[in-house]
């Protein structure tokens, strides 16, 4: 696969600045998370999205605010792109009550009812049936909303993937299945875990419109997602998009990366989606001198603010430990 893409149209380049800003925001946010993890301010499992930003940013740009998103445990980027504040996410990772899940979820379980962000699911493929049900609910009530369901290629070996694809297609539900193929299910390479490595072909077996796209090209990601969302919203049933992407960092904070070579990682880093877009915008004259630096300053300010907010956050009182187990207390 090469990084050659068609020359984008002018409106795409104009929006490109916003997409660049958004990808940078995700990148810098997570880089700060790494520092905070090293400083033991954040604990537990933490999975970084660095390298894959084009997917969440490109895909989320094609959703309406009232569309739903279901994601995985590698979801800081999706949450930011769906509109959750850096403050609420950082506070969550600090385990604060001001966090988007009151500190109950942590890095892997970000939720936001107002923004229809349904997690943050740490069981691989566990979110797919939920996405089917969310879309079923919309269809039964005649709402023209779409559910975006993100998962990694590792999920495609799970039964829940197959059951969900079948149900969504059978009932012609408005779900877009967005597969982030970063080539490794934790440490297991795609070729070592799937008999069929052409993922779009595999998905197409369910009579779901399926195709693959360069996941390092945010404009291509956005265009593909928009097409998928438009089909789903128009009643054309589910779509499947494979985003060919790459995780630049370790699987989690406890990964010595024995399963891939440094050379391979370096090769993919040459295709960094942020650098690639920056170059294209600059070459096309859509990114003036100093604009990138201004973005960086703004983003650093937002993240500083988020960290301060999280630091100052409060803890859920221990008396409330079991408060949200059931919404209705027994009489």
């Amino acid at each position: 696969m090469t990084s050659t893409s068609p020359v984008p149209a002018a409106p795409d380049l104009a929006e490109g600045r916003r997409l660049l800003h958004e990808m940078l925001r995700l990148r810098r946010f997570e880089e700060r998370c790494v520092e905070l993890y090293s400083a033991a301010r954040i604990r537990g499992f933490m999975h970084l999205y660095i390298g894959e930003e084009a997917v969440a940013v490109g895909a989320m740009a094609s959703l309406r605010a009232d569309d739903a998103a279901v994601t995985t445990y590698r979801e800081h980027g999706h949450a930011l792109a769906k509109g959750l504040s850096a403050r609420s996410i950082m506070a969550e990772m600090f385990g604060r009550v001001e966090g988007c899940s009151r500190g109950h979820g942590g890095s892997m379980h970000l939720f936001d009812a107002e923004r229809r962000f349904y997690g943050g699911n740490a069981i691989v493929a566990g979110g797919l049936p939920l996405a089917v049900g969310l879309a079923l609910g919309d269809k039964l009530r005649g709402l023209d909303r779409v559910t975006a369901c993100y998962f990694g290629e590792g999920a495609m070996a799970e039964g829940a993937f197959h059951e969900s694809m079948n149900l969504a297609a059978l009932w012609s539900l408005p779900v877009v299945f967005l597969c982030e193929n970063n080539l490794y299910a934790m440490g297991t390479a795609l070729t070592r875990s799937e008999s069929q490595t052409d993922l779009a072909l595999k998905a197409a077996a369910y009579e779901v419109t399926s195709w693959a796209v360069d996941g390092m090209d945010v404009l291509a990601c956005r265009a593909a997602s928009r097409r998928a969302v438009d089909i789903a919203r128009a009643g054309g049933g589910p779509c499947f998009v494979e985003y060919r992407t790459y995780r630049f960092r370790a699987h989690s904070m406890y990964d010595p990366e024995l399963y891939r070579s440094k050379e391979e990682v370096e090769r993919w880093k040459q295709r960094d989606p942020i650098d690639a877009l920056d170059r294209r915008l600059t070459e096309a004259g859509y990114l003036a001198d100093g604009e990138r630096a201004q973005m960086e300053t703004e983003i650093a300010g937002e993240i500083d603010d988020a960290v301060a907010y999280a630091e100052e956050g409060t803890q859920e009182p221990v008396e409330d430990l079991t408060r949200y187990v059931l919404r209705r207390a027994s009489s």
Binding site: V70, P129, L134, A135, L136, N166
Partner: peptide
């Protein structure tokens, strides 16, 4: 798993 999960989503 699929339809119980779909029930949860709905």
């Amino acid at each position: 798993a699929g339809f119980v999960g779909a029930g949860i989503g709905a």
